[in-house]
Simulated assay, not measured.
Amino acid sequence: MIIGTLGPKGTYSEKAVRQWDDKADLKFYDDIFDTVDALLRKEVDCSIVPIENSLEGSITLTLDLLMEHQLKITGEVVVRIKNCLLSKGNLEDIKIIMSHPQPLSQCRKYIKNNFKGVEIRSDLSTSHAAKLASGSKEIAAIASEESARMYGLNILDENIQDVKENFTRFIVIGKNSPSPTGNDKTSIIVYLEKNRPGALYEILGEFTSKNIDLTKIESRPTKKVLGDYVFYIDIKGHIEDKTIKETLLKIKSKVGMLKILGSYPAAK
Rank of each mutant, 00 (worst) to 15 (best):
L65A: 06
D31M: 07
D45F: 06
Y29T: 06
K27T: 03
V44Y: 09
I51L: 08
P50E: 10
K72Y: 06
L71V: 09
Y29A: 10
C84R: 11
G75V: 08
E76P: 01
A24I: 01
E68S: 12
R80L: 06
A24Q: 06
L39T: 08
N83A: 10
D25R: 14
T35V: 08
L63F: 12
C84Q: 10
E56Q: 14
N53Q: 04
G57T: 02
K23S: 14
D64N: 13
S47N: 05
E52P: 00
G75R: 10
M67F: 12
D25L: 13
T74V: 15
D22N: 15
L63M: 11
L55V: 05
I48P: 03
L40P: 00
A24D: 04
N83I: 03
V44H: 11
L63C: 02
R80I: 05
D30A: 12
N53H: 15
S58P: 10
V78C: 07
L71F: 06
L71D: 01
H69L: 00
A38K: 12
D37K: 15
L61M: 09
K82I: 13
Y29W: 08
E56D: 12
K42E: 15
K23C: 01
K82N: 14
I32K: 03
F33M: 10
D34G: 06
L65K: 07
L71R: 05
F28E: 02
D64P: 00
K27V: 13
D37G: 01
D34C: 03
E52R: 14
N83T: 05
V36N: 09
D34Y: 08
E76C: 07
L63N: 04
S58Y: 15
I81F: 04
D25Q: 14
V77T: 11
G57C: 06
K72Q: 14
D64E: 15
E56C: 11
D30P: 05
L71H: 03
V36H: 10
M67Q: 09
D25P: 00
I48N: 04
I59K: 04
G75F: 07
T74L: 03
K82H: 08
P50L: 10
T74F: 07
E76H: 03
V49E: 06
K42C: 01
V44I: 14
L65R: 09
E52M: 13
L65N: 07
F33P: 00
K42N: 14
D64W: 02
E68Y: 09
I51C: 05
G57A: 06
L66Y: 02
V78F: 05
E76W: 01
K27H: 11
I81L: 11
L40R: 15
V78Q: 05
E76M: 11
V49S: 06
S58F: 15
I48R: 07
K42F: 08
I59Q: 08
D25A: 11
L40Y: 03
V49Y: 03
G75K: 05
K82P: 00
E52F: 09
I59M: 10
A24L: 03
I51R: 02
V78M: 11
